[in-house]
Amino acid sequence: MNISLKKARIIIRKALEAGAAAEMKPLSVVVVDAGGHVIAFERSDGASPGRFDVALGKAYGCVMLGMTGSAQRDRAEAQAYFVGAMNGLFGGRFVPVPGGVLVRGKDGAVIGAVGVTGDSSENDAVAALAGIDAAGFVGEA
């Protein structure tokens, strides 16, 4: 099972709608496949242009390590050397904080990840989960 472009667009639209409904700051949302490749990205009006890299870093870390953003944060707090080493291996391409959410198919396999940035990391994760749920997938934050 893969995340189609149609489903990625649903994830993004619903995540942005959830953020707006909760009066979050302008969000940016990226959806990646199981290899960390971008399927789709969108940035709300007013979101800073650097948010693409932050959103991608959140999602990329999830798929590369098979860990949620919150699990990466917890691991960084307990074993900073591990996260530092892993980020070095991946060229500094991941951001180990909430807002990176694994996407699982109905069989439980990881099929990609969503990265949301713009508000608090915890709110970013809430918006990501709303989008993932709306697309019919299971999110793990």
Rank of each mutant, 00 (worst) to 15 (best):
L56N: 12
F41S: 06
A85T: 07
T68L: 00
G50F: 10
V97D: 13
M67Q: 00
F137S: 00
G36M: 10
G88M: 09
A47I: 05
G50W: 13
A8W: 03
V83N: 01
D124Y: 06
K14L: 14
G19M: 12
P96V: 07
K25T: 01
G118W: 05
R13A: 04
E77V: 06
E122R: 13
K7T: 01
V31E: 04
A34P: 02
V126L: 11
S70M: 05
G19L: 13
A59F: 11
L56Y: 15
H37P: 07
E17N: 11
S28K: 08
I132M: 10
G36L: 10
A22F: 03
V31Q: 07
G91C: 00
R9Q: 01
E17A: 14
A76I: 03
G118R: 03
S121Y: 15
K58W: 11
A55T: 02
F41N: 13
A85C: 04
V97A: 14
D45L: 09
A134K: 05
E23P: 02
A18W: 04
A59S: 15
K6G: 03
A113M: 07
R75L: 03
T68D: 02
D45C: 06
D133Y: 14
R75N: 00
G91Y: 01
A85M: 01
G36D: 09
M24V: 10
S120Q: 11
F82G: 06
N87H: 03
V114F: 15
S121T: 15
I132Y: 14
A22K: 10
L27I: 00
A8Y: 01
V32F: 10
A128S: 06
L56C: 12
G61Y: 08
G50E: 13
N87D: 04
A55N: 08
R13P: 04
G112K: 14
M64T: 10
A130D: 05
K106F: 07
G57I: 04
A78E: 07
A34D: 05
V31G: 09
V126M: 08
G36E: 13
A22E: 12
A130G: 02
A76H: 00
R75C: 02
G115H: 04
A130N: 04
A18M: 11
A80P: 07
V95L: 14
I132A: 00
A85D: 01
A34S: 11
F41W: 15
V95Q: 14
R75G: 04
G19W: 09
K58E: 06
E77A: 07
I39M: 11
G112L: 12
L27H: 09
V138S: 06
A20R: 15
R13K: 05
A55E: 03
S44R: 12
P49T: 07
R9A: 02
R73F: 05
V138N: 08
A130H: 11
T68C: 01
Y60L: 01
V138A: 09
A20K: 13
V54Y: 12
A76N: 07
D53V: 09
Q72K: 00
A127T: 00
P26K: 09
S121R: 12
